[in-house]
Design a protein around this nucleic acid. Structure first.
Lengths: 228, 228
DNA sequence: CAATTTGATGACTACCGGTCAGTTACTACG
DNA sequence: CGTAGTAACTGACCGGTAGTCATCAAATTG
């Protein structure tokens, strides 16, 4: 009796149709201005049906975001899988994150929006849990890389990988976010190009996390080289 | 004929009454859940009147935020005014920012929310302009401090003060924000205490911005000392 | 083929941001 | 004063939206 399996499959497909529709509308309008009616129309379903698959608008938004985290996860995984050496890999991750921001700005913005406490309150426990798990996977991957850096003697052993991961990631995210909303403002106000600032910030932090010996090895490469 | 002046004064007072009411309600409910009716009731005015003084809910929200920027500005100004030496002052600014986050978390959250592009679109040009000006003042103050650091030979002259300001501030803001929403999550997931991470991140960045000579002078103080 | 379960629907409700015609309070002036 | 004119204020109302639920339709079962 494969009926159950088929129904399960159909249910998954519906969820995906809805998710795609939601993504499209959210990207075009943003969370506030997007309406459930619009999403329903885009999905060629009635509004009521959406609520059979997702708890509400915010849950749907988070569900789209989770797919985004997974996209980024795949990109990161690919880079790390190449085994290019720790320092090079970190620089590539940073470049990939910037590219992700450029090519999937809408998803990146979601990551940022997700940080607001107000948003957290409007979302169901279940989806929040899923989100945490997706987050965890990607963080762990980065932490593991940094730990390997310590083990190999490339990164200072007196700084712990978990903390370094948070530091590197946070500073990159914050500058990218500013770039998204206020690049021009900063150009005019302080005459700085935020993309440049981001590169310098990464270089500064990475350099200060490296051991004396590896610093010598990579010296000039840090500031000048731009991995694709 | 002082009538005009009196009216002007009364208008200012009304604006302030509304602003205080809005602040109270926004702090309790957040932007989304706060309603204009509630704010009107808190201000003991009718809803229509609010719109005689502010263009809309989002403008009102930004107006509250601008006062927050000014509060932070005053705190920063006080610290800088003490002329304690550049490095010490930077550390104190960082401490003040953390204290601001603790004591005025709601205002801090507004700064973060302000970054979302969706929000930018819902706000009037005028208030955005005011916001830029308030922002500008505080940024310039920090940049001037860092520039003085370069002039005095405490900070590296090959890094420019504007960029350094953005780097320091962004990384601090990002970590504080994470702390606000997801401190527990990070404690469990990576076993890191974000407040500690913030201190390390500041120390790391500051150290890497310092000249060789001043680094020697301050060595251990960077990591251990916690200015009040 | 009838009974039952599952899934989908869209009219409906409650609520909210913003408006505006009407009211009130204040000022100017004869 | 009293009245015309102005400025400030009000709250009923409107359009729009998230979320619900009684009803219907299709699929499944026995």
């Amino acid at each position: 009796m494969g009926i159950h399996e088929r129904k399960e499959r159909e249910r998954e497909q519906r969820r995906e149709v809805i998710l795609n529709a939601a993504q499209k509308v959210f990207f075009e309008k943003g969370l506030q201005s997007a309406t459930m009616d619009e999403i329903a129309e885009e999905a060629e379903l009635s509004k009521g049906t959406l609520y059979l698959y997702y708890k509400g608008k915010e849950d749907l938004y988070l569900a789209v975001m989770i797919r985004g985290i997974e996209t980024l996860y795949d990109l990161f995984k690919e880079v790390i899988g190449k085994n290019d050496g720790i320092i090079m890999t970190i620089q590539k991750l940073s470049a990939v994150y910037i590219r992700f921001f450029r090519e999937h700005g809408n998803l990146f913005r979601m990551f940022h929006y997700y940080q607001t406490p107000q948003f957290h309150k409007q979302v169901s426990e279940e989806i929040l849990q899923l989100c945490n798990e997706a987050n965890q996977r990607i963080w762990k991957m980065v932490v593991d890389l940094l730990r390997k850096g310590v083990d190999e003697g490339v990164l200072r052993s007196d700084l712990n990988p978990e903390e370094n991961a948070v530091i590197l990631w946070s500073s990159a995210s914050a500058i990218l976010m500013r770039m998204d909303t206020r690049r021009e403002e900063f150009k005019q106000m302080l005459n700085v190009d935020l993309e440049n600032v981001l590169r310098k910030s990464n270089a500064l932090l990475l350099e200060s996390m490296m051991t004396e010996s590896s610093r010598k090895q990579f010296q000039s490469a840090l500031f000048d080289h731009q991995p694709s």
